[in-house]
């Protein structure tokens, strides 16, 4: 007992400088981002992190200095998240999302997409038939406030006018496009999120979408305006309905996985489904943005029906090619050296 030289104290004194250096670098990286650190500092972080981890292991086995243990645990966790958390730069990440993640996730939902499409078509056909037989059905099938005078009571002329409403209020276009985008995005997010209830509310929402579509067509066809309505709707509708269908498909995927997780634990299966549908939904928002722009701007500027159909067909082909053409899987963790 004569020589009271605590090994744990010496251990701490020898390594403290390295820990403090790591702490300083972490603080700078968190505050200023990796771009502001010198190459030497960036290279030092993983080395110092591993040294700190090894210190933590040793300290746990040999030291009873609780201040030291608490400090090292917090420091290592902080460094871990920085070293392993951000593997790629934001732009690489976004590039990878468009080149691979998004189409691959959409492909994985093929079955659900077909089901959502079928429900949409079913709603449209049923609503079309109902309204054709008895126009009063229109008011029950169409959400109030959405028809804006486009109902069975309207005359052919006023209906025609709604399809050519470009005129002089071009300034309103941008407001309209913005509103449509934010509104549709919220609807799509609900459709997806409600998939959690085994997909039942999602199917219902999708059916309603189809009904609105079918009812509108029935009204216009009765006045011989079906073809024009097709151009007016489909110029943006191909993109928008595709997006909404994908959102419903994502909801179904969640609901299906929840009900039938297969051989895996339900939670694990759900996590996989959640990540896959997360990518799809992110893409859906982008599609809705495009649809909003087409609806708010392109539709008001392009009033010729053939031109509208041309854009509709082009957008359909482009989306399908983008999603379903086979492509190579990129190498995982392909980060490359940091370019300056």
């Amino acid at each position: 007992m004569a020589d009271l030289t605590l090994k744990s104290r010496k251990f701490r004194e020898e390594r403290e400088a390295d820990w403090r250096k790591l702490e300083r670098l972490l603080a700078r990286m968190e505050k200023e981002g990796p771009g502001r650190l010198s190459d030497d500092d960036l290279l030092a972080i993983p080395v110092l992190y591993r040294a700190a981890l090894s210190s933590l292991s040793v300290a746990r086995a040999t030291s009873l200095d609780r201040a030291l243990l608490d400090y090292l645990e917090a420091l290592c966790a902080r460094a871990y998240f920085l070293v392993y958390g951000v593997r790629t730069r934001l732009w690489t990440r976004i590039g990878r999302f468009f080149a691979y993640d998004w189409p691959a996730s959409v492909q994985a939902l093929g079955r659900e997409t077909l089901a959502a499409l079928a429900i949409l078509a079913l709603g449209a056909v049923v609503a079309y038939l109902l309204v054709t037989v008895d126009p009063d059905w229109f008011y029950s099938l169409m959400p109030a406030g959405l028809s804006q005078g486009r109902d069975p009571a309207a005359t052919t002329e006023s209906l025609r006018a709604t399809l050519r409403d470009a005129g002089n209020h071009t300034a309103l276009l941008s407001i309209f496009a913005t509103f449509l985008f934010t509104h549709n995005a919220q609807v799509a997010l609900f459709g997806f999120a409600l998939g959690f209830a085994f997909g039942v509310p999602t199917a219902f929402l999708q059916l309603l979408n189809g009904c609105a579509l079918g009812a509108l067509f029935a009204v216009f066809t009765a006045h011989g305006l079906g073809l024009e309505l097709g151009g007016w709707l489909m110029i943006h509708g191909v993109t928008e309905l595709f997006a909404v269908t994908l959102a419903s498909a994502a909801g179904f995927h969640i609901g299906w996985t929840l009900a039938f997780p297969g051989r895996r634990r339900r939670v694990d299966a759900l996590v996989d489904a959640g990540k896959r549908t997360g990518a799809v939904m992110f893409g859906v928002l982008i599609m809705l943005f495009v649809a909003g722009a087409l609806e708010g701007v392109a539709r008001q500027l392009i009033t010729s029906t053939p031109a509208r159909y041309l854009i509709a067909a082009t957008s359909g082909v482009v989306w399908c090619a983008f999603f379903y053409l086979p492509r190579a899987k990129p190498l995982l963790g392909q980060t490359g050296p940091k370019s300056r």
């Binding site: 392993y84 958390g85 951000v86 593997r87 990440r93 999302f97 993640d101 959640g274 990540k275 896959r276 549908t277 997360g278 990518a279 939904m281 992110f282």
Partner: peptide
Amino acid sequence: ALTATNIFA
């Protein structure tokens, strides 16, 4: 690592 899809979901 946390991915964008984690965060989005």
